[in-house]
Design a protein around this nucleic acid. Structure first.
Lengths: 217, 217
DNA sequence: CTCCTCTTGTGAATAATTTCACAATCTCAA
DNA sequence: TTGAGATTGTGAAATTATTCACAAGAGGAG
């Protein structure tokens, strides 16, 4: 009696997944332009990778193209959505209604990627209440109740560094299994919880380093 | 007659530089706690890398530690500032005074990294004028003049995708040699111009992928 | 149906990055 | 001054990621 075969057992470079959003957006654009078929050459050029890297990246998830022809835009788009978990809406709750939290809450780019900010949380009672029609700032104590009610899956941590560990623990207690952490600290969480770190200054300091090195200050 | 020897000829992994901001912040903290000496073991633990990776990363820039003792916090901090080009202030101009641009302009974390936002630029005349005591939104046409006057080095592109290429060209014409691009497009620029791409959704889509894969949606 | 052209999919080769393991050498104590 | 204990710095090994190069189809023309 055959077991259900595991979805995918292949391992692939971590960087592969980080290129998928690029592919997704390129394909979205081709779709808008009513282009039905695209070659790895063409698409790779557009996103700035080599054609063989694009093909290799896709190959980890099956034979998604048509030999001799290219990739079917609509089909590949659907596959990539599936791979990135965008085939269903992901609901985010932002903890920390400071400047960073509010900016993220208002970011218009989430929608096209199947992401949705449904609530903010803060300890500061002065911030509690509706932000606009869609969005309310809740007391931090409502984390578990609202997660349940709104179906939140991802907790976004935009709190000061000193608070981050404590808040992460609250989020885990409240049932979150995925944290997107903007605070510049490593978090201690149970192994089943996934943490993604975001460090906004890395990019600009990389630039600064190149300026220093290339132009000697 | 000896030529001036080139500052550094070693090549190192690109990821090395992206770990330096982590080291920088850990060291800053040790400094505040009046810890004068720290081992690679201790510091690596704190930032979440292996001790040998930390030592290797630092070794590309010379022998920065003391065998048998560890790293001198103040000395290493100074060195890392130098490597990241933080030994002098870097001045940023943000092009695109939309939500993202304004959020970055108000980000309080830049200061401790030697970064300073000195101006915003926009085509929309409704946005022109002072934002607060420190900061003004200028017409895009003033890009070159203000870059010169304020000593701006890095242009931050927070404009819509469709505008990004054109705006990049304006920035290059205005004399910028470093672009930090938040628009999800690859930019065509002359080879001497450095572009750093920032893609805010990569992190959260990575989470989404892990959710889909680990918990099967 | 066959041939020719095109482009994918993928093992193998190459390149890049990380980890290992230990010699070098510093500190401190007696 | 010497020896014990600690921790760096770094070639070499191991691992991971990218690129190459070509066989395996797919599609279209005749």
């Amino acid at each position: 009696m055959p077991e259900r075969t595991p979805e995918e057992l292949v391992t692939f470079p971590k960087a592969t997944i980080s290129r998928f959003p690029l592919y997704f957006r390129a394909l979205t654009e081709y779709n808008h332009q009513n282009i039905g078929l695209v070659s790895s050459e063409e698409m790779a050029q557009k996103v700035g990778v080599t054609p063989s890297q694009l093909r290799k990246d896709l190959s980890y998830f099956g034979s998604l193209g048509i030999r001799g022809a290219g990739y079917d835009v609509a089909y590949l788009l659907a596959k990539i959505k599936e791979i990135l978990g965008m085939d269903r809406q992901r609901r985010l709750g932002i903890i920390g209604a400071g400047r960073m939290g509010m900016a993220l809450a208002g970011y218009s780019g989430f929608k096209q990627h199947g992401l949705e900010v449904l609530a903010l949380f803060d300890i500061d009672r002065a911030k509690w209440g509706p932000v606009n029609e869609q969005l309310t700032v809740f007391p931090l104590s409502e984390l578990a109740a609202q997660r349940e009610k709104l179906g939140l899956e991802i907790a976004v941590l935009t709190v000061p560094k000193a608070e981050a560990q404590k808040v992460a623990e609250l989020a885990v207690e409240a049932g979150f299994r995925a944290l997107w952490n903007f605070a510049p600290v490593r978090l201690e969480v149970p192994p089943e919880v996934i943490v993604q770190y975001e460090d906004i200054v890395v990019g600009v300091l990389t630039l600064s380093h190149h300026l220093a090195r290339k132009f000697g200050t």
